Structures are given as C-alpha cells and as structure tokens.
Computed example of a mutant assay.
Amino acid sequence: MPHAGLKTIIALSFVLAIGFLLVILSSALYGQYSPLFVVATYLVAPIPNAICSRYASSYNDDFMDSGSSASSVLDLGRFLTGFLVLMGMALPAVLAHAGVIQLGAMVMSIIGGLLIYGTIIAFTMFFQEESDF
C-alpha cells in the first residue's frame, strides 16, 4: 500500500467529517435522535477484526504452522465486523420501517454511516504496518 501523505490524511478527514455531519443532521433535522446509534455501530465495527487479527498474528511462527486455529479466529473477527457493518446499515431501515424515523433520516444515516466506515477502512489500509518477513 502507498504511504499516506498529508493530502490523503486531509481528504480522509474531510470524508469522515461529512459522514458524521450526515448522521448528526439526520438526527437534528428530523427531531429523532435514534439514528445516532449508527455512529456507535460503525465505531465498534473494526474492533473484532483488529482483536482477532492481533490474536492470530501472535500465533504465526516461522517454525510452526498455526493451522486452522488462527484462520478460524480471523474468520470470526471478519464475521463479527461484517455483522456490525450490516447492522449499521440495517438499523436505520428497521427504524424507518417501524415509523420511529422518517425516510430522509434513514437515507442520510445510511449514507453517513457508509462514509464513516469507508473512511475507517481507508485509514487502516493507508496506515497498515508492513512487515519485511
């Protein structure tokens, strides 16, 4: 991956700010603060993947094959992360279907949440440490 420059950091910060702005506006413009739960799900979503990848990388050894244990842990982390991302997109749809929030708030919340999570993924891709081994 390319090294992150100052322009990349500024662009990703701008997109993250737009995502948070959309989620906050989806709550403030329509007077219902339920769409703010999306922010929590998108902030918690990368945590299982980070924990499980750290756990699996601690068992990678040059002399021994970690076998299916490390890959199972990685798969679990990816599954939980995917579940939380999907929950972040589905929660506004369920709230709109139940009549708790309006359709405009749902659309703004989903788009803002996708921008937030996309920015988190881009940050992790640009600032990932590469090993020489």
Rank of each mutant, 00 (worst) to 15 (best):
Ala4Glu: 15
Asp75His: 15
Ser34Glu: 01
Val94Asp: 04
Cys52Phe: 13
Gly118Pro: 07
Glu130Cys: 14
Phe14Gly: 03
His97Ile: 10
Val85Gly: 06
His3Asn: 15
Phe133Met: 07
Ile51Arg: 10
Arg54Tyr: 13
Phe126Met: 10
Phe83Lys: 08
Leu95Phe: 02
Arg54Leu: 14
Val94Thr: 05
Val15Trp: 07
Ala40Glu: 10
Tyr42Leu: 06
Ala96Val: 03
Leu103Pro: 05
Thr119His: 01
Leu12Pro: 02
Gly112Pro: 10
Arg54Ala: 15
Val38Tyr: 00
Tyr30Pro: 01
Phe133Ser: 13
Val23Lys: 05
Ser131Pro: 05
Thr124Phe: 14
Val100Ala: 01
Leu86Ser: 11
Tyr55Lys: 11
Ile111Glu: 00
Pro35Cys: 09
Leu76Pro: 11
Ala40Cys: 12
Ile101Asp: 00
Gly82Val: 12
Phe20Glu: 00
Leu43Lys: 07
Asp75Cys: 11
Ser72Trp: 11
Asn60Gly: 14
Ala17Gln: 06
Asp61Arg: 14
Leu6Pro: 08
Ala105Asn: 02
Leu12Gln: 03
Glu129Gly: 15
Ile18Lys: 00
Val15Ile: 13
Ala122Ser: 05
Gln32Asp: 02
Thr8Pro: 03
Gly67Asn: 06
Met1Glu: 11
Ser58Asp: 11
Tyr117Thr: 01
Leu12Gly: 04
Met89Leu: 10
Gly31Asn: 02
Glu130Leu: 15
Leu80Ala: 12
Val73His: 08
Phe20Met: 02
Met1Asp: 08
